[in-house]
């Protein structure tokens, strides 16, 4: 299945990945190859088969409602590219 560059631009926008004009053709072509590979799935009839999101039929265990974490703000904030007054800084958020 061929993928046009417009589709790639839309995907890149959704995934927030900047793709340069120089490489977009190449990216489109590779994505097309991969989608061609996965399109083999369409050949098989899966009517009535329940999709399997987890390999094992296990069920979720729930945890007790207790505070187990302590404040490690300084340790975490030290990893941030930019922070001030205990906050992570980003370019202005406009609502």
């Amino acid at each position: 299945m061929a993928v046009d560059t417009q589709t790639v631009e839309k995907l890149a926008e959704l995934a927030r990945i900047a793709i340069s004009n120089a490489t977009i053709e190449e990216v489109s072509s590779r994505l097309g190859d991969i989608l061609q590979l996965v399109d083999q799935l369409q050949a098989i009839n899966t009517d009535g088969v329940i999709p399997m999101a987890h390999p094992l039929d296990e069920v979720q265990t729930l945890r007790a409602d207790a505070v187990t974490e302590t404040d490690q703000r300084n340790s975490f904030l030290s990893l941030a590219p930019q922070s001030d007054e205990g906050l992570y800084l980003v370019p202005k958020v406009i609502d």
Binding site: L62, R63, V67, E69, Q72, Y88
Partner: peptide
């Protein structure tokens, strides 16, 4: 397991899971 108390100093109640640190995983509260 981070506290939900209202009004704490910024980011003092955001643990590794809440911050989506790499490799962290969720476990739901009963």
């Amino acid at each position: 397991g981070a506290s939900t108390r209202f009004g704490a100093a910024p980011n003092t109640q955001a643990c590794a899971v809440d911050l989506a640190m790499p490799g962290t995983l969720p476990v739901p509260n009963e």
